[in-house]
Design a binder for these strands. Structure first.
Lengths: 151, 151
DNA sequence: CTAGAACCTCAACTAATGTTGAGGTCAATC
DNA sequence: GATTGACCTCAACATTAGTTGAGGTTCTAG
């Protein structure tokens, strides 16, 4: 018995339920170029099943604090039109993991500083690396700057 | 020679320059109860010097992703009216550090999952802890939930 | 074939975190 | 004592990440 049903494209309701992302958010992602859909003759959306993985990636990336703009850029590295292979995803994940590592390092740095800085009650504005994060993060590569909040 | 000048309250321009926070943002923080100021006879703001530390705390907390609402709650634990002592700040910092630890732990967890999950290209929605963070984070205490993005 | 669930678009709204500008006042210096 | 930079308030705008609702269409089950 072939599992034809499991290859049927997903309706927006199905994608929403399976991904835990509301239909309105899916519309929003589409408007912003994060996902795409075919249309039926009657203009309803039909999603390729790998869109599920795409949405999962979006959710996961958001959970670690990335703005959609950055997520879209990353997704742009996936092949257009065809279902991404394992290799495509792995390549993407590698970059992502690197940034995650940097984010963790930055937070640990922050925590250590907190111990010696706010923790002791000093919170000196002049010398405190928490207040001048560019000194520290800048030295460890431009990439880390991406993780500081905008401004 | 006493350093009378160093105890003079700060104008908004001075506070802005020293803290690196724009005057309009300081206005905003005041409207939202994060900082406060005395007024001169001519209605201009004058900040106690410890407001500098308060603003530093706000900035630092924002850098690790906390919303102003939470920051305000934390600051509410500081004494009203008088300059907080070292002890006041230390108490506050202790709580903050705990949350920071939890955030780091959650991110590390996320990164480890990424290795085995997106990293391998599976990103299974059913079983992946990245997709169902409540399973994991929920088990390690309600506090960790605070760190997942709202929604 | 028809009822009702699911879907469509478009516009308006929300919330957080501010910025910008208009129109007017204060204060420190020449 | 006038000028000029710093300050004041208030309202409107910006951005991100969506949600809500109105009004209309499509799909599927009986």
């Amino acid at each position: 018995m072939p599992q034809a049903a499991t290859h049927r494209p997903l309706t927006i309701g199905e994608l929403s339920e399976r991904s835990g992302v509301s239909a309105s958010a899916l519309h929003f992602y589409e408007r912003n170029g994060l996902i795409e859909a075919e249309r039926t003759a009657g203009n309803q959306r039909r999603y390729r099943r790998d869109t599920l993985r795409r949405v999962a990636f979006i959710k996961t990336s958001q959970r670690v604090g990335l703005p959609l703009k950055d997520i879209r850029e990353a997704l742009d590295s996936l092949p257009e039109g065809r279902t991404p292979t394992k290799h495509d995803w792995a390549k993407l994940s590698l970059r992502w993991r690197k940034e995650l590592d940097e984010r963790i390092a930055a937070l640990q740095h922050l925590r250590n500083d907190l111990d010696g800085c706010i923790g002791c009650g000093c919170l000196s504005l002049k010398s405190c690396t928490l207040q001048n994060p560019s000194d520290e993060l800048g030295a460890s590569g431009a990439g880390a700057q991406r993780w500081t909040l905008p401004k």
